[in-house]
């Protein structure tokens, strides 16, 4: 099993903690002039999503997590699993509901998502930063009204609900920022 020394710590490094793969977000080297050195790190647990702080003695080794990101296109769901495909090798991988999590409301067929694999199995699915989805339902809104009044809720084809300007109507396709869940613009069909 590979190990990392605290000297190798930096943002993005994947380590094991309490049996769970984690991503180092920040690493701070703490060394009083006359005292022992420590590394204080901020860590995100990749399965639970919890962010926590942990202190290590400098020079300590920590088990590496076999975690890698792959870019895969979303194909379909069979109701239980979500199927993704590598567009180069055509290799397919199925992620369960837990791995997909909140990304489910942004999954668009053929969109390339980032799938994080731990020991070869998907643990998280990150949608593209921007997706285009059709509005299936929204109030007609008032004619002549302009953007900037707070807008109205709109339900998208995936079930996601976003706030849109009043002039946007059912049946239109909109661009959404998946990181904030906010409306960006209308898309010309």
């Amino acid at each position: 099993m590979a190990n990392y020394s605290t000297n190798e710590f930096k943002g993005g490094l994947k380590i094991m903690l309490d049996g769970e793969p984690c991503n180092i977000l920040e690493n701070e080297y703490v060394k009083p002039g006359k005292g022992q050195a420590f590394n204080r790190v901020k860590i995100r647990k990749l399965i639970s999503g919890k962010v926590l702080e942990k202190t290590f003695r400098s020079g300590e080794s920590v088990e590496a997590a076999d975690v890698m990101d792959t870019e895969l296109a979303y194909l379909y769901t069979d109701g239980e699993f979500y199927h993704f495909m590598n567009n180069d090798t055509f290799e397919q991988i199925a992620a369960d509901e837990k791995a997909v999590g909140d990304a489910v409301k942004w999954l668009v067929e053929n969109d390339v998502c980032t799938i994080t694999l731990w020991n070869g199995s998907p643990i998280t699915v990150t949608p593209p930063n921007f997706v285009e989805l059709e509005i299936t339902e929204t109030d007609p809104g008032l004619k002549g009204d302009t953007a900037g009044t707070g807008g109205k809720p709109a339900t998208l084809s995936t079930g996601a609900v976003v706030r849109v300007p009043l002039f946007v109507q059912t049946g239109e396709v909109i661009k959404v920022d998946t990181r904030s869940g906010e409306y960006v613009s209308r898309v010309q069909k």
Binding site: P32, E53, T55
Partner: peptide, 23 residues
């Protein structure tokens, strides 16, 4: 003070003081 470190009982007294003081 939410300082999470493994086996703190193995740290010498001065290291514990320094850890608390510096963090």
């Amino acid at each position: 003070h939410q300082i999470d470190i493994d086996a703190p009982d193995t740290l010498p007294r001065d290291s514990l003081l320094q850890l608390l003081f510096s963090m």
